[in-house]
């Protein structure tokens, strides 16, 4: 029942085509504005920090100064650098976070692979436990974990070993896939390995490779995309964590988080002692913004370096099913 293309039909088609072209243009403009607006909301905290970090005290008081400082200064960078003990705290934090996230990547991949490829008794239960660790809020475990590490290995009977203020709690938890949001990483790796063809392992088996050889030399290299994703996520979350870090390192104040959280208080106190207690709260703003920049710029640099592969990787992980 094909309709013959009549004159009216043709012009109707053309009108529809032109209308849709016009609609497309309107939509493109609307989309651009929307995206720009949302991008501004996302990036503005960063811009505020950059702007605030260069402002001098007069600029903060001067209501005619908006985003661009009129009397820019590098003084805050110098002061905060000292207050944060930056080279040392940066080095320590980088070491700790790198070690923890590498351990998390290894352990979660290992566990995820076992769950994806092998059948053993209580497998469903183990996977259920993985998901359960995610649903329980960290608030619930904070105090007992703190006590557990304070009297480690004693199970409530004796003094045990005090692991607080050492990196061991983090390393132990990362190595066993129970660190920050590790259930999610195990889940991602399990889904990814489930989606990989079995023929790879069968070929390795025929060639005489054992299960661990197969895992390390065949499966790991094939899982680069999700490995990178969980590495970046684990690094970023560990870097940003203050909940566990400030609890486990209650005494030692040489990590970036402590330095960062402390710098505002310390500096404010020092400032108030110098200028009396009338010193307005706004004083802290330049210090705060400069310290924030010191805190997040290493992370942003890492993400900037890996972002292309990271975004592509997320699309290939098993999260989507």
């Amino acid at each position: 029942m094909a309709q013959p293309i009549t004159e009216t039909h043709g012009s109707d088609l053309r009108r529809r085509f032109e209308k849709s072209k016009f609609q497309g243009l309107v939509w493109a403009i609307a989309r651009t504005l929307l995206l720009l607006g949302m991008a501004f909301i996302i990036v503005s905290p960063l811009l505020v920090k950059i702007s605030g970090s260069f402002m001098s005290l007069e600029d903060v008081y001067d209501s005619s100064v908006g985003w661009i400082p009129r009397r820019p200064t590098l003084e805050h960078y110098r002061v905060v650098f000292q207050f944060m003990n930056y080279p040392r705290s940066l080095l320590l934090t980088t070491l700790l976070v790198t070690a923890v996230s590498l351990l998390q990547v290894i352990s979660c991949t290992f566990i995820g692979y076992g769950l994806a490829r092998y059948d053993f008794p209580f497998k469903g239960l183990v996977f259920g436990c993985v998901l359960f660790t995610l649903v329980v809020p960290p608030q619930l475990l904070l105090v007992p974990l703190y006590i557990n590490f304070r009297y480690f290995g004693a199970f409530g009977m004796g003094p045990g070993v005090n692991l607080l203020n050492t990196p061991l709690p983090f390393l132990l938890m990362a190595g066993t896939g129970t660190g920050i949001k590790n259930g999610l990483f195990i889940y991602i790796m399990r889904q990814y390995f489930k989606g990989m063809p079995r023929s790879l392992e069968e070929a390795a088996h025929v060639d005489g490779a054992g299960p661990f050889r197969t895992f390390f030399s065949i499966m790991l290299p094939a899982a680069q995309a999700p490995l990178l994703v969980i590495f970046v996520l684990s690094f970023a979350w560990q870097w940003n964590d203050y909940f566990y870090t400030t609890t486990i390192f209650q005494a030692k104040n040489d990590l970036l988080v402590h330095r960062y959280l402390g710098v505002v208080q310390d500096y404010m106190l020092a400032f108030r002692e110098e200028h009396g207690f009338d010193a307005p709260f706004e004083m802290s703003t330049m210090i705060l913004n400069t310290a924030s920049l010191y805190y997040i710029v290493p992370l942003l640099a890492l993400f900037g370096f890996l972002q292309g592969r990271f975004i592509a990787g997320i699309e290939r992980t098993g999260l989507v099913g």
Binding site: S107, L115, T176, T178, F215
Partner: peptide
């Protein structure tokens, strides 16, 4: 194969008991 699978998930089982179930 079942034993191999258990070896793979063993770290988690230990961690789950020591750093999750026990504190829980």
């Amino acid at each position: 194969r079942a034993l191999t699978g258990i070896v793979f998930v063993l770290p988690f089982v230990i961690g789950f008991i020591a750093f999750f179930l026990y504190p829980f």
